[in-house]
Each structure stands twice: as C-alpha cells, then as structure tokens.
C-alpha cells in the first residue's frame, strides 16, 4: 500500500522561500509514487491561479522567452505529471473561502476548490501531515 501524505501551504506565490521548499518536498514525495493531498490555504490559493502571466524584463533587456519567468501554476501542473509518471497521485484543493476573499477562482484544472472539511479529511485519511504556516503569523 502506498504511503500517503498531506501538506498544508499558506504563503502566497513570489513571497516566501517556504513555498519553494514545500514544492521541493512535494516533488520528492511525488517521485516516490506517494499519494499526496495538498491543501492550499490563505494566500497559497494564488499558487494555482491560472491567469498568472509571464512578463518581459525591460531592465535586463529580456523579452518574455529570455526572461522565462516562473509561474507557480505551471509548477503545480508539472508536479501532477511527475506524480502520475511515478504511479502516485496529487489531490490539490484550494480553500474556497480564501479564494473568494482574494477574488481568485480561476484555477488550473488539476486542482479544485474545497473547504476546511477537505483538510480535515486529508489529515484523517493520510499517514502523516506537514503544515507549513505563513511567515507572518
């Protein structure tokens, strides 16, 4: 039986290295074929926001392609592909209340909206949980 883990994320994209470290952890677990449950809470709901757009960098005279600006929603899609390739899974839930507060509802298709009940069910049904709180509390 596969190992299952829950991760709770809280930081908004582009604001904290915690998010990058968290995604590295999820990537490691995905490569092991684990079944992963991710609950994106508070600002972290914006990680899966589909309207994130790459931009050029005028200061460095880079066009969009040269700048190759990272987009977290692309990382999330890539993590899903990694999990599937390794016969694992990722169920990624974005907190609906947090999304409503921030006007965010256009998520990449490999994620869905949900509530705290999802988080409770994730914690109850998986082998272990890591909560990665915000840097501001």
């Amino acid at each position: 039986m596969s190992i299952s883990l829950t991760f709770a994320l809280m930081d908004a994209p582009y604001e904290s290295s915690r998010t990058v470290t968290a995604l590295r952890l999820i990537d490691i677990a995905a490569r092991r074929g684990y079944d992963l449950k991710i609950f994106a809470y508070e600002g972290a709901v914006a990680l899966a926001y589909k309207d994130q757009a790459a931009h050029a960098n005028i200061v460095h005279k880079h066009d969009i392609e040269e700048e190759n600006h990272p987009l977290p929603h692309k990382w999330i899609e890539s993590l899903h592909e990694t999990a599937v390739q390794h016969k694992g899974s990722i169920e990624w839930v974005n907190c609906d209340i947090c999304g409503d507060e921030r006007g965010i509802d256009n998520y990449v298709e490999c994620t869905r909206g949900g509530t705290h009940v999802d988080f409770w069910q994730f914690v109850s049904s998986t082998d272990n949980t890591l909560v990665i709180g915000t840097t501001t509390t």
């Binding site: 190992i3 883990l5 677990a29 092991r32 082998d127 272990n128 890591l130």
Partner: peptide
C-alpha cells in the same frame, strides 16, 4: 524530511 514523514515521525515547521 520526506523519509521522516513517511516513517510517521512528528514533523513540525
């Protein structure tokens, strides 16, 4: 860290 989680250790950030 993933090893610790998989082994059921209490992992706190």
């Amino acid at each position: 860290v993933v090893d610790a989680l998989a082994a059921g250790h209490k992992v706190l950030w």
